[in-house]
Amino acid sequence: MTRDDTTDEDFASTLALDLGDEDMVYLAGPEPVTRIVRVAPAQVQGSAMDGLFAARRRVHGSAGVPGLSGAVLHVGGWFVLWQEGPQAAVQAALQPSQRRQRYGTPRLIHRSVGPRTLAEPLALSITQWPEKPERFAERIEAIAAAAPQLQPQQVWRAFSEPCTLAGARPLLIPQRVAVLASDGQRSIEVARRLADRFDHPLVYRRFAGARPGSRDVGAAYLDLPLPAALLRVLAVSRRAFAHPLVHESLRHAGRLTLLVGTQETRAMELAVGVAAFLGRADLRPAIELVAESPDVGSFVAGFLRNRTGLAVSEVEGRPGDAQLLALLMGSRAA
C-alpha cells in the first residue's frame, strides 16, 4: 500500500492492521462517578506481571463488579489500585475480601466524584524502578497530603512515574518530551543510548489491557538535569502507544518527536494514532518529524498538518545522539 493507491481515510480505517483489538483505546464517558485510589504492600512471589495477569483473570470471573473500571500498578514493592464507577460499585470494591492475603491492608489515598477516565475492568502496569519499599512509603505520605487537591490521574502519575533524580519532590512534573517510533522498539533504543551517554537510569514500564490473554507492551523514561530545565524523555514503543495508560503519561508532553522509518504503512499507522490521540485529549504540542525517507516523511508530515492543524517540523536522515538530544530540547543545533 502506497500513497499512490490509497487515501488518508484508508490509512485511518486500517490503523488496526498491526495493532490487535486488545490494544485499542477505549474512551470513557463524561458521567460523574466515584473515583478512588488505594495503595497496599505487595506480597508477590515470582513475576509481578504474572501476578497482575492473575488479577485480571479474577476480575473477569467472580471478583468482577459490574460498572467498575480500574487500573493496577506494581511499583517499589507496592500495589496502587485506581478504580472508578457508580458509588454502589465502588462500595462493593471496598468491602473486605478473603483475597486480601495477596497484599497488605489497603490504604485509601484519594476519593472524589467526577468524570470517568478509565473504561476497562482492569488495566495493568508495572514500573521497574528499584525503589526500596521504605522510600516508597515516604512517597505515599507526601502524595496523600496533596491528594485532596488532585485528580485521580494526577495521583496515579505521581505513584507510577517517580522522578529518578536525587532530592526530587514526589509531585514534581518535569518538562516532558515524548519519543515515538514507527519501527518496533527504536524509541526505547534511543532512550537507552541517551541514558548510557549521561549515566542516568532508564526506568522501564510495562502495560497490558483488560482483555484476557492480551500481552504486555513496553515503554521507558529518562530524567535529565539539563542546564535550562529538568527534562523527562518518554520513550514509547509503537504497540504501547495505543494503551490508554500510556496516553495518561503523554498528556504533559510539550513536544512529540516522531521517528519514522522507510515503511510507509507503519509510519502512517503511527501518524493516525498520534492525530487521534491529540484530537481526543485536545493537546497542541510541538511536533518534530525525523524521517529516514524524504518521501515518507513528506507524506506523514502533510497528513499530520491536515489532521491536527499543527505545525510539523521535518528532519531528514538518522541523526546521532547529540543531534537527537538537541531536537528533543527544541533546537536543531547539534
Rank of each mutant, 00 (worst) to 15 (best):
V72E: 00
S69R: 00
S69I: 02
T117N: 04
S97V: 03
P86D: 12
L81G: 14
L108N: 12
Y103I: 02
S112A: 15
A123F: 04
A123N: 10
H110I: 05
L122R: 08
A123Y: 06
E120V: 08
G70W: 01
V113W: 03
L108T: 14
R107C: 07
R99M: 12
Q87E: 15
S125V: 11
V75K: 00
P86V: 02
P121L: 05
A89G: 09
R102T: 14
V90H: 07
P106K: 07
Y103W: 13
V80H: 00
L81F: 13
R102N: 11
Q87T: 15
S125H: 14
V72C: 06
R99L: 10
V90L: 03
Q98M: 09
V72S: 05
R116H: 10
G85K: 08
T105V: 13
R111F: 05
L122E: 08
L94R: 12
Q101L: 10
V80Q: 08
P115V: 13
A119E: 04
P121W: 07
R111P: 08
Q98N: 12
A93R: 12
R111D: 10
A88D: 13
R102P: 00
A119Q: 08
A71E: 02
E84K: 03
E120F: 06
A88L: 06
P96L: 01
P96G: 07
A71Q: 02
L81M: 10
G77S: 04
G76D: 02
R111I: 14
G76N: 00
V90K: 00
A89C: 07
Q98H: 11
R102G: 14
R100E: 14
V80W: 02
G114L: 01
L118F: 06
H110D: 00
R102C: 02
R100A: 15
S69F: 11
G77I: 01
Q87S: 15
Q91A: 15
G70F: 00
R107A: 05
G85F: 05
L118T: 03
P96F: 12
L118I: 10
G76E: 01
V80K: 00
P96C: 06
R102D: 10
L94H: 09
V80N: 02
S97R: 15
Q83D: 08
H74K: 04
G77Q: 01
R111W: 08
A71P: 07
W78Q: 03
Q91I: 08
A88P: 04
Q83K: 13
E84V: 10
I109W: 09
L108C: 13
E84L: 00
R111V: 15
L124C: 13
R99C: 08
V72R: 04
L73V: 09
V72Y: 01
A71H: 09
Q101F: 12
Q83M: 11
G77L: 02
Q91S: 13
R111E: 15
H110L: 15
V80I: 07
L94E: 14
R100F: 07
S69Y: 09
A119H: 10
L118M: 00
L73S: 11
G77N: 10
V75L: 03
A123T: 05
A93I: 03
R102W: 13
G77A: 09
V75N: 00
G114N: 05
T105G: 05
G114W: 07
